[in-house]
Design a binder for these strands. Sequence first.
DNA 1: GATTGTGAATAGATTCACAGCT
DNA 2: AGCTGTGAATCTATTCACAATC
Lengths: 211, 211
Amino acid sequence: MAPAGLNMESISPLTLNRLSVYLRALRQLDEEGAKRISSREMANRFHLSAAQIRKDLAQFGELGIRGVGYEVAPLRHKLEDQLGLWREHRAVIVGAGNIGSALAQFPGLNSEHFRVVGLFDIDPGRIGAQVGRMKVRPSGDLAQIVRDHKVELGILAVPAEAAQENYDAMAEAGIRAVLNFAPVYLREKPEARVKNVDLMIFVEELAHHLG
Amino acid sequence: MAPAGLNMESISPLTLNRLSVYLRALRQLDEEGAKRISSREMANRFHLSAAQIRKDLAQFGELGIRGVGYEVAPLRHKLEDQLGLWREHRAVIVGAGNIGSALAQFPGLNSEHFRVVGLFDIDPGRIGAQVGRMKVRPSGDLAQIVRDHKVELGILAVPAEAAQENYDAMAEAGIRAVLNFAPVYLREKPEARVKNVDLMIFVEELAHHLG
DNA sequence: GATTGTGAATAGATTCACAGCT
DNA sequence: AGCTGTGAATCTATTCACAATC
């Protein structure tokens, strides 16, 4: 009997990130029409560890069938649930520069699970510009859009020096989670969790190996 | 006596990524005119762990002064050296869609340490388009540009289904390291190291916490 | 016979706490 | 007096290896 909802332990961040990887693999398998997959097959195919797949998945109950493997579609949906993808999340992007504009049109953020409902900037030269299917709005309209569309997710794509004030404004408007692309440490408020994404960390990791 | 160059141990990936974080902090301190900083001050200011800063830095010799702290400018340069930033690295970007075009104009990739020397696409509708200071070139010109500019770093910003063939072409052309933004597992060649960046992992991590 | 789920073993990372310098 | 560098202790993550199950 799988103790479905009563898991006290929170998922470790490393495991959580792997769930996203497994989910991507399962979606591909599902599209290919695969009905079942063993941890070994999945590990070989997507360059993962079979033991780790099993340990990670076992946290959510007995999801597999001994002697057989995992059923692709049900496992996919289980992982989507764990990742909060059982409902649509609305997002706004603040900063309509290159990165912000690219993210506004990013397929993953305009999918079944996420929807970008606003792209904001403070620069009058950008306000009103068409970016994909959206028009850039003045940052002053943020709070109203967040309220009207029940936005939970904010994406910060402003210069470093403007990041803290825009984060504060997002938190104030009721946003619950922020993905920060500005290369700066944000003083975090309890109501709005921050996840930093620093692209230079990836580039510098490669540069180190180049020597 | 610090055994400067004879470090046999390779740096762990977690430590390596923190070096980028420390470097960013040190640059800011340097610009502010700070001459010295203690691990404690740095930890408080940038929300890090003092013991971890010391452990990480101690790998590269006795960089600090007991009773005093670290000298900002020399430490900054030591970390830049460790991260391979003592010389300029040339990069090309393949895929001139939203993400590729944004990265072509990303300040970190057009800095003292990195330079984007080419932006490529296969779509005739994009070839010739002006993106920042660059014109989009046909992917067929990749090998020549890589050779002429001694390019070491490739950035893959093509759709998932085109990623493997473009990675192979990069490796073939002589590129040594690839930052892959396509959400797909690449069969890696020994001559061209891959670092995957999947933006959906970050978004889904936040979505999980939103529940 | 095959594969999961899992306790035990191993490996790796972080934090503690203090000796050693300045 | 204050801060680094570091061994020891702790905590976390991964891998192994096999009993349980289909």
